[in-house]
Each structure stands twice: as C-alpha cells, then as structure tokens.
Simulated scan of single mutants.
Amino acid sequence: MAPSAKTALLLVDIQNDFLPPDGSLAVAEGRDILPHVYRLLAEGKWDLVVASQVDHPHGHVSFASTHGAEPFTSIPVPKLHSPGETVLQMLWPDHCVQGTHGCEFEAGLKKKLGEDVVVIQKGTNVAVDAYSAFADNQYAFFTPLIKSLHSAGIHTVVVVGLATDYCVKFTAIDSCKFGFRTLVVKEAVRGVDSKATQQVFGELQEWGCELVSIDDVL
C-alpha cells in the first residue's frame, strides 16, 4: 500500500451469535479469526476502524420463525418498492436480535475497540435482509458507511470478519463497487460453508478484491 493512502480496517459482524460454541448461527471455525483480528487492532496503523453489527428487530424477514418455516430453506418475500414482485430470501435461525447477548460484539473484541471506532448497524429494517455493511440486499437503504469512509478520506479498505460466503463477500464486493481498493485478509475470515470458500475467493478477485495475508497489511 502507498504510504500516503489512507486505510480503514473494516470488522464485519464479529458478534456472539456468529461464534461457537453458543452462537445461534455460529460459523464453525469462527473463533480462529480472533487472534488475527486482535493483532490487526494492536499492530495496525489505521486511519479509521469500522465495525459492522447485524442488529435485527424481532420478527425479522430473515428469521425462519417469522414464517413458521425451517431454517436454511428459501422462500419468496415481497420486494421493497416493487409491488407484486418478490425476491428469494434465505431463512436463518433467529440471530443478532436487538438487545440480546448474541447481538453484542465478541467480548475480547469489545475490550480492544477504541472509543473512536465507527459502528455501522445493519439489518435494522424488519422487511429486508442486509449482508453488506454498505446497504441492504435490495439496495433500498444504505448505511452511513460510505459517508464515513469518504469523510475520512479513505482510499483502501481492509476487510476481515464473518462470514466469508455471506456478509464478508457482499461487503467486500460493495467496497469495490464504490471505488475503494479492497483487501481481504485470508487468515481473518471464515465461511459458513468452508468448502465454498475458495470459490468465494475467486469471485472476490473477479470483482477486483485483493486476497492478502495479515503480514501484507501490517
């Protein structure tokens, strides 16, 4: 990275419900990223640190319980601002419900985040899911993330967190779409489907993301 390029560290959804052993939607190897994330926070010279947080209301459209359906199945749900149209929605166990322990950042991470961390909450609209830290899945609503990055003069975004095949993927792709140089730290991401990770890495590279190791960004 060029010395003059301002860089942000973007921590994607490192929350209790995505971590074993007790998370309701735990990524099996999710805790493996924590030492790397802690190191990035301790040793990195970041111009901005951002932490995205899934913050779902009760009865969220992505919850299987909302529809009386089975988790990990898909159903059509109404498309916002397009009467009569639908989109396919993956259904999950209830997770990251506002005000619950599962919604909170992992305890060790909470201790290491400075007071100047920018927290970006997503998935707050009951009617639409939001994988990316930039916008919901239909691009109907945008989070403050793009404004925060531009206001800080950020050129490069370093992405870590959970999960590679969902929220990390869509966040990194959107980062590229918005014109940021986007680096994904391989040691500091894990996927729901570990077998699909290599395919996701290939897709990220097609969008312009760079796959790097932790030593490349420290």
Results as ranks from 00 to 15, higher is better:
residue 2 A to I: 01
residue 2 A to D: 15
residue 3 P to S: 12
residue 5 A to F: 06
residue 5 A to C: 01
residue 6 K to I: 05
residue 11 L to Y: 08
residue 12 V to E: 09
residue 14 I to V: 15
residue 14 I to F: 14
residue 15 Q to K: 07
residue 16 N to R: 07
residue 17 D to E: 02
residue 20 P to W: 06
residue 21 P to T: 09
residue 22 D to K: 13
residue 22 D to I: 04
residue 26 A to Q: 10
residue 26 A to T: 00
residue 28 A to Y: 04
residue 30 G to K: 03
residue 31 R to K: 15
residue 33 I to Q: 11
residue 35 P to D: 09
residue 38 Y to D: 13
residue 38 Y to L: 15
residue 40 L to M: 15
residue 41 L to C: 07
residue 41 L to S: 10
residue 41 L to Q: 07
residue 42 A to G: 05
residue 43 E to I: 03
residue 45 K to Q: 14
residue 48 L to H: 02
residue 48 L to K: 04
residue 49 V to M: 13
residue 52 S to N: 14
residue 56 H to W: 06
residue 58 H to D: 14
residue 60 H to A: 08
residue 62 S to E: 03
residue 64 A to S: 14
residue 65 S to Y: 01
residue 67 H to L: 04
residue 68 G to Q: 05
residue 70 E to T: 14
residue 71 P to F: 05
residue 72 F to G: 11
residue 73 T to S: 10
residue 80 L to R: 13
residue 81 H to W: 01
residue 81 H to T: 05
residue 82 S to L: 06
residue 83 P to T: 01
residue 84 G to M: 08
residue 84 G to Q: 07
residue 85 E to K: 04
residue 85 E to D: 05
residue 87 V to I: 12
residue 88 L to S: 11
residue 90 M to C: 11
residue 91 L to N: 00
residue 94 D to R: 14
residue 95 H to W: 05
residue 97 V to S: 14
residue 100 T to H: 06
residue 100 T to W: 08
residue 101 H to V: 11
residue 104 E to M: 12
residue 105 F to Y: 07
residue 107 A to G: 07
residue 107 A to H: 05
residue 108 G to P: 11
residue 108 G to Y: 07
residue 108 G to E: 09
residue 108 G to M: 01
residue 109 L to H: 08
residue 115 E to C: 04
residue 115 E to F: 02
residue 116 D to C: 07
residue 116 D to F: 09
residue 117 V to I: 10
residue 118 V to D: 07
residue 119 V to P: 05
residue 121 Q to A: 03
residue 123 G to E: 03
residue 129 D to Y: 00
residue 131 Y to W: 12
residue 131 Y to F: 10
residue 133 A to T: 07
residue 142 F to H: 09
residue 142 F to Y: 14
residue 143 T to D: 00
residue 144 P to C: 11
residue 146 I to T: 08
residue 147 K to M: 08
residue 151 S to P: 09
residue 152 A to G: 10
residue 152 A to C: 14
residue 152 A to L: 10
residue 155 H to C: 12
residue 155 H to S: 11
residue 156 T to F: 04
residue 157 V to Y: 07
residue 157 V to E: 11
residue 161 G to H: 15
residue 162 L to D: 13
residue 163 A to P: 05
residue 165 D to E: 12
residue 167 C to M: 03
residue 170 F to L: 14
residue 171 T to M: 04
residue 172 A to C: 06
residue 180 F to C: 05
residue 182 T to K: 03
residue 182 T to W: 08
residue 186 K to M: 08
residue 189 V to C: 13
residue 189 V to S: 02
residue 190 R to L: 00
residue 195 K to P: 01
residue 195 K to D: 11
residue 195 K to A: 10
residue 196 A to L: 12
residue 199 Q to H: 12
residue 200 V to S: 02
residue 200 V to W: 02
residue 202 G to M: 02
residue 204 L to V: 03
residue 204 L to F: 01
residue 205 Q to F: 02
residue 208 G to F: 01
residue 209 C to A: 13
residue 209 C to I: 07
residue 212 V to C: 06
residue 213 S to H: 15
residue 213 S to G: 13
residue 218 L to D: 00
